[in-house]
């Protein structure tokens, strides 16, 4: 375990020293600032309209505030998407890149078990990726709250589900990194991510059109890659009642948001899936020739 923590520490230092963290923070600050500027202008417009309509104030949970609610929802979708990209791109060569460039030989000639190395890489990159998404989520939701006074009803469980999705993506990318070349791994994990997204779309269309076949295909894709289901589960917690009613009225026609909470079994499966991926990565890498 001590060696795994040493490798995790190495991964964190590597992320900092290669300026991955600095570049990410700067670009993310630019993104969040840009987005919040738009929200601030939107808030100003809505407030002016309320004054023009002779209202003293508007409810943060009422229909008049729906644009702000959607701004928070779509903002979190961007955070989820950026976090997913970050999880894959930062981790794609976690093991394979060091194997390909020869660094791994001198490391594994040391008294460290390969399983410890994989665990350390996963832990290090998970801390970076999860920490990043948690930070950006807090910045975005905190910024919206500061500018508009609007706070989504259950932000913490929503962010928790997004973080689980990021941890799962990181685990699957580490697994791919022990099985494939860096490039093949990147392509593979993005295709898998796309399969999960396709599952959400198929489920939405299947639900809208009452098609059992599409619903089954959607469920299969979601089990294969639960990240989209986790996002949809997060959107349930991010929406106030007024948005859920709107969604229910449209029979789930919007594939990006859900009006139903995620099944607990799916959350458990996602966590188990991540653990299985890391376990498989440890087992596979322990038996691989370098």
């Amino acid at each position: 375990m001590r060696k795994a923590l040493l490798i995790a520490e190495l991964s964190l230092r590597e992320a900092v020293r290669k300026r991955l963290v600095v570049v990410l923070l700067l670009l993310t600050a630019a993104f969040v600032g840009f987005y919040l500027y738009g929200v601030w202008r939107l808030e100003g417009t809505l407030a002016q309209r309320a004054i023009d309509a002779g209202l003293e104030s508007r409810s943060s949970t009422g229909a008049a505030n729906i644009p702000i609610m959607y701004a928070a929802l779509f903002g979190m979708y961007l955070v989820f998407f950026l976090g997913s990209l970050m999880a894959v791109l930062s981790t794609v060569g976690a093991v394979s890149a060091d194997v390909e460039n020869g660094v791994m030989q001198s490391v594994l000639a040391r008294p460290i078990r390969r399983a410890e190395l994989v665990a350390g890489r996963w832990l290090g990159f998970t801390l970076v990726n999860v920490g990043y998404v948690a930070l950006v989520s807090a910045a975005l939701l905190g910024g919206i709250a500061a500018l508009t006074g609007y706070v989504p009803p259950d932000a913490l469980p929503a962010v928790g589900l997004i973080l689980l999705a990021v941890a799962l993506l990181t685990a699957l990318t580490v697994l791919g990194s022990t099985l494939f070349t860096t490039l093949a791994n990147g392509i593979g994990v993005f295709v898998l991510y796309g399969a999960g997204f396709a599952g959400g779309i198929l489920t939405a269309i299947g639900s809208f059109s009452d098609s059992p076949t599409l619903l089954t295909l959607g469920r299969v894709a979601s089990v294969l890659m639960p990240t989209n289901s986790l996002w949809l589960g997060a959107t349930y917690h991010l929406q106030p009642e007024v948005l859920r009613q709107l969604g229910a009225a449209s029979r789930g026609a919007n594939p990006l948001f859900s009006t139903d909470p995620i099944a607990p079994g799916m959350v458990l499966w996602a966590a188990l899936y991540a653990a299985l991926a890391i376990g498989l990565a440890m087992w596979r890498f322990s038996r691989r020739d370098l």
């Binding site: 660094v103 001198s106 000639a109 040391r110 008294p111 460290i112 078990r113």
Partner: peptide, 20 residues
């Protein structure tokens, strides 16, 4: 690992973490 703790190795392709 107990055996490898007593080994030293200079690989032919001496590639190391160049950010260190």
């Amino acid at each position: 690992p107990g055996v490898r703790a007593q080994l030293g190795f200079l690989p032919e392709q001496f590639r190391f973490q160049t950010w260190m």
